[in-house]
């Protein structure tokens, strides 16, 4: 009797902590959202949009690396698939509204993700990384050769068009809030997935796959679904990026892009919701600052050094380290 009471007491305090934790996170997210809404007044909107596109890309990637434990080294393929599909459709069919182009791009990336998943999902760890990398190279080849991608030149002058047929996206402010809305939507989707029972299973797979199998979960199916969702969201980021910058290029399909999104996620903190956003902001900002200064040619080595430093010294990433610090000092 007494024992049960203390147990429920304990449960209550634990739930209390959990609730307080949730509330704190909610407040933090709302503050960030408010800042993002106000940001175009101070910061160049195109630059912010670039950050948001890459942040969405990294958030999508993190669903896989951070919550399922699968390292894909081929996510550039999805970014580019989304970008090229949207770019091609919007340039060739002027009757198409922008959101239809973006939906089509996302669908294309999702389908490609399903193909990748079928081939790669049976392998784990580094095998998985290398297979996704090679598959992405195959896709890269298709993009170089296919008639609709413009080969080495890429697609230029993609019209931004009208959202829902009546909101003119040539207006940078309208464009920004559209990108922000899509980003928030994607972020919330990932948050919802991670906190759902499905997300719990994903985490279980990440922590101990054999145990998840022995508990009766069809692990491969869970992983395939996570992979496909991640690919779709990466494609969405690519589509958005094409609309914002009005171009789709081979750069997006190159495996360096796959490396970059890993860096963003790792640097910000894998397995944290906010981490990839912070990482993307940091990397995009760094690249921009460097390209402005005398160190413009040193972007690659500096990114490499950050990679090494992150892996050596703080594997939990910026957000992860802050969380660890808070946890230590709160309890």
């Amino acid at each position: 009797m007494n024992n049960a009471e203390t147990e429920s007491e304990l449960q209550k305090t634990m739930m209390g902590h959990l609730k307080a934790d949730r509330r704190r996170k909610l407040i933090l997210n709302l503050v960030i959202l408010a800042l993002l809404i106000l940001a175009p007044a101070v910061i160049y909107a195109t630059f912010l949009m670039k950050i948001l596109c890459f942040a969405l890309f990294a958030v999508a990637f993190n669903l896989l690396l951070g919550y399922t434990g699968l390292l894909s080294f081929g996510h550039a393929a999805f970014l580019a698939a989304g970008g090229y599909t949207t770019g091609y459709l919007l340039s060739s069919y002027s009757g198409l509204t922008t959101e239809m182009g973006i939906i089509a791009g996302t669908a294309a990336a999702t389908a490609l993700g399903a193909l990748f998943a079928i081939v790669a999902i049976r392998r784990q760890g580094i095998y998985f990384a290398m297979i996704t990398l090679a598959l992405a190279q195959l896709v890269y080849f298709v993009f170089v050769q296919a008639p609709f991608t413009g080969g080495e030149d890429g697609l230029h002058g993609v019209p931004r068009g009208h959202l829902f047929g009546f909101i003119d996206l040539e207006n940078n402010v309208a464009m920004y809030y559209f990108v922000l809305a899509v980003f928030v939507g994607g972020y919330l989707l990932v948050q919802r997935i991670v906190n759902s029972p499905y997300g719990q299973v994903l985490k279980a797979i990440k922590q101990n796959e054999p145990r998840a199998v022995s508990l009766g979960y069809n692990v491969d199916r869970y992983k395939v679904i996570a992979f496909v969702i991640s690919a779709g969201l990466a494609g969405l980021a690519g589509s958005l990026k094409t609309v914002v910058f009005q171009l789709a290029s081979l750069n997006d399909a190159h495996w360096h892009m796959s490396g970059e999104v890993i860096l963003m996620t790792l640097l910000g903190g894998t397995g944290t919701l906010l981490g990839p956003v912070v990482g993307a902001t940091f990397v995009v900002n760094l690249e921009y600052q460097l390209s402005q200064g005398p160190l413009g040619d040193w972007v690659d080595p500096i990114l490499g050094a950050i990679f090494v430093l992150t892996v050596m010294a703080f594997r939990s990433g910026i957000v992860g380290e802050i969380q660890n610090f808070m946890r230590k000092n709160m309890s």
Partner: peptide, 15 residues
């Protein structure tokens, strides 16, 4: 992590 570390090293050397 060893994959990522050597990737970073490669970027540095090449760059």
């Amino acid at each position: 992590y060893s994959l990522l570390l050597t990737f970073g090293v490669a970027l540095m050397i090449q760059g």
